[in-house]
C-alpha cells in the first residue's frame, strides 16, 4: 500500500486543488497510476465526443461527393459554398432569424416577468402566494407535450397559431415555471437586509428591485438564462406542432426538413454546414456564460 504513510501534501493538495487546479503536485506512485489512467480514459472519451464534431466541421467545407467518396480526407479545396447553400437554398438563414426572434423574445419576457414574480413570491406573503407557488411546481412537473393539443386550440382561437408571436408566448409560458422556481430559491438565499436598507434610504419597491436586488441576483439570472437559452434554442416538439407555416420555421424544424427530404438526394454538405450554424450560437453563449458566471459569483459573495 503506497498510502499507508501520511502524506502531508495530500490535505493541502485537496483543498487548494479545488480553487487552483493548476497547483503543482507532488505525487506518490499510486497517484501517478491513477493520474495516467485518468488521462487515458478521459482522453478516449473526449475523442469519442469530439471526433464526430470535428468530422462535421471538416466535412462542411467539402463537396457532397467528396464527403461520401473519401469521408476522412481533408477537403481538397476549402470552400464556403456549403454555408452559402445552407443559408440561402436550404433556408437556414430565415430559420435562423426566426429562431433568434422567438428565442430572444421569449427569453426577455421570461427573465423580466420571471424575476419579478420570483422576487415577490420569495419576499412577500399575500393571499394566494402559496397557491401560485404550487401552480408553478405543477407546471414544472407536467411534461409540455401534454399541453400541446389544447394549446393548439388556444392559439388557433386567438389567431396566434403558426405565428412568431404565438411561438414567443408559448416559449415564455413553457420556460416560466423553471425560471420562477429557480430564481425563487435564489432570491430566498439573498439577504433581505440590503433590500430593507434600500427601503429605509427611501428607494421605492421598483427601484429596490431593479437597482438593488436584480444586480445581486446576477449569477442566478445568468444560470437560468443560459439553461433557458439552450432549452428554447433546441426546442422541437412545440414548433413542429404549433408552427407549421414554413415561412416561420425555426432552426430545429429546418434541420428536421433535411430528414424529410431523406435518402440519396440529401445535400450532405449543406446539412453539415447547417449543423455548424445551429451549434455555434449555443457554444458562444455557453463559453461567455462560463466566464461571466464565475466572475459574478465571486463578485456577489464579496459584497
Amino acid at each position: 500500500m503506497t498510502n499507508t504513510t501520511v502524506d502531508p501534501a495530500t490535505s493541502d493538495r485537496r483543498d487548494s486543488g479545488r480553487t487552483n487546479p493548476s497547483n503543482k503536485q507532488t505525487s506518490t506512485a499510486g497517484d501517478k497510476v491513477v493520474g495516467s489512467v485518468s488521462h487515458t480514459v478521459l482522453t478516449i472519451w473526449s475523442i469519442i465526443v469530439i471526433l464526430p464534431m470535428l468530422w462535421v466541421l471538416l466535412s462542411s467545407f467539402k463537396t457532397t461527393t467528396e464527403i461520401f467518396a473519401s469521408p476522412f480526407a481533408l477537403p481538397e479545396e476549402w470552400s464556403f459554398n456549403n454555408y452559402v447553400n445552407a443559408w440561402t437554398t436550404s433556408g437556414i438563414g430565415s430559420f435562423f432569424s426566426n429562431t433568434i426572434i422567438v428565442v430572444f423574445g421569449a427569453l426577455i419576457l421570461t427573465m423580466l416577468f420571471g424575476s419579478m414574480s420570483a422576487y415577490v413570491l420569495a419576499r412577500f406573503q399575500f393571499p394566494g402566494s402559496r397557491a401560485i407557488y404550487y401552480l408553478m411546481l405543477a407546471g414544472l412537473t407536467f411534461p409540455i407535450f401534454l399541453a400541446i393539443v389544447p394549446l393548439f386550440f388556444v392559439l388557433q382561437s386567438t389567431g396566434l397559431l403558426n405565428t412568431l408571436l404565438g411561438m414567443i408566448i408559448t416559449y415564455t409560458a413553457f420556460a416560466f415555471p423553471f425560471t420562477v422556481f429557480f430564481l425563487f430559491s435564489f432570491f430566498k438565499s439573498l439577504s433581505t437586509s440590503i433590500a430593507e436598507a434600500a427601503a429605509i434610504d427611501g428607494a421605492g419597491e421598483w427601484r429596490t428591485f431593479f437597482q438593488v436586488m436584480l444586480p445581486m441576483a446576477r449569477p442566478g439570472l445568468a444560470t437560468v438564462a443560459i439553461l433557458n437559452f439552450v432549452g428554447l434554442w433546441n426546442q422541437f416538439l412545440l414548433p413542429i406542432a404549433l408552427n407549421t407555416n414554413p415561412d416561420n420555421y425555426v432552426l430545429t424544424q429546418g434541420m428536421a426538413q433535411f430528414a424529410a427530404q431523406a435518402g440519396y438526394s440529401i445535400d450532405a454538405g449543406a446539412l453539415f454546414a447547417a449543423v455548424i450554424i445551429t451549434v455555434i450560437p449555443v457554444l458562444i453563449v455557453y463559453l461567455i456564460f462560463q466566464r461571466q458566471l464565475q466572475g459574478s459569483v465571486s463578485q456577489g459573495t464579496n459584497k
Binding site: M136, T172, A173
Partner: peptide, 8 residues
C-alpha cells in the same frame, strides 16, 4: 401560466 400552460 394559467392561459398557456395550466388550463391546457
Amino acid at each position: 401560466i394559467g392561459l398557456f400552460y395550466l388550463w391546457p
